[in-house]
Amino acid sequence: MSATSDIATDAIAREAAGLVAHYGFSETTTVKLLSESENKIFLVNDPERPEKHVMRVNSGRLSYHTPRQIESELKWLIALRHDTDIAVPEVLHARDGSLVQTIGAPDMDKPRHVAVYSFLSGAEPPEDQLATGFERLGEISAHMHLHARDWTPPAGFERPGWTPEAILEDQLQWGAWQDGVGIGGETLKLLSRLEDVVRKRTDELATGRDEFGLIHADLRLANLLVDPERTAIIDFDDCGFGWYLFDLASALSFLEERPDALELVACWLRGYRKVADVPIDIEAEIPTLIMLRRLQLIGWVGYQQQHLDFARQIGPGFTADSCRLATDYLARFA
Rank of each mutant, 00 (worst) to 15 (best):
S2G: 10
T4E: 15
A16W: 01
T30G: 10
L33I: 06
S37I: 10
N45Q: 15
N45W: 03
N45H: 11
P47S: 08
E48Y: 08
P50R: 03
E51S: 07
K52H: 15
S59T: 05
G60F: 01
R61K: 15
L62E: 09
Y64D: 05
S72N: 09
L74F: 08
L77E: 12
L77S: 06
H82P: 09
H82F: 10
D83M: 07
D83H: 09
T84W: 09
A87M: 12
E90D: 12
V91M: 14
V91T: 14
A94H: 00
R95C: 15
D96Q: 05
L99C: 13
V100F: 09
I103P: 08
D107K: 04
D109M: 06
S118L: 10
S121L: 13
S121P: 09
A123W: 03
P125G: 05
L130S: 03
T132K: 08
T132S: 14
G133H: 02
E139H: 12
A142K: 01
L146D: 14
H147K: 02
A148K: 01
R149H: 09
E158W: 00
G161N: 05
P164K: 00
E165S: 13
A166C: 04
D170N: 14
Q171R: 15
G180Q: 06
G182C: 01
G184Q: 15
K189H: 10
L190N: 02
S192Q: 13
R193A: 14
E195I: 02
E195Q: 13
D196I: 10
R199A: 02
L205C: 09
G208W: 05
D210V: 07
H216C: 00
R220G: 11
N223L: 01
N223I: 03
P228S: 06
R230D: 14
A232K: 00
D238L: 05
C239Y: 01
G240N: 06
F241V: 15
P259W: 07
E263W: 00
V265W: 00
A266H: 00
L269M: 12
Y272R: 10
K274M: 12
K274E: 04
V275P: 03
P279I: 11
I286D: 05
P287T: 06
T288Y: 00
M291G: 05
M291R: 10
G299K: 01
H307F: 14
L308T: 04
L308N: 09
A311F: 03
I314M: 11
G315F: 13
G315N: 11
P316C: 10
G317I: 11
T319H: 08
A320Y: 08
R324K: 13
T327N: 11
Y329R: 05
F333W: 12
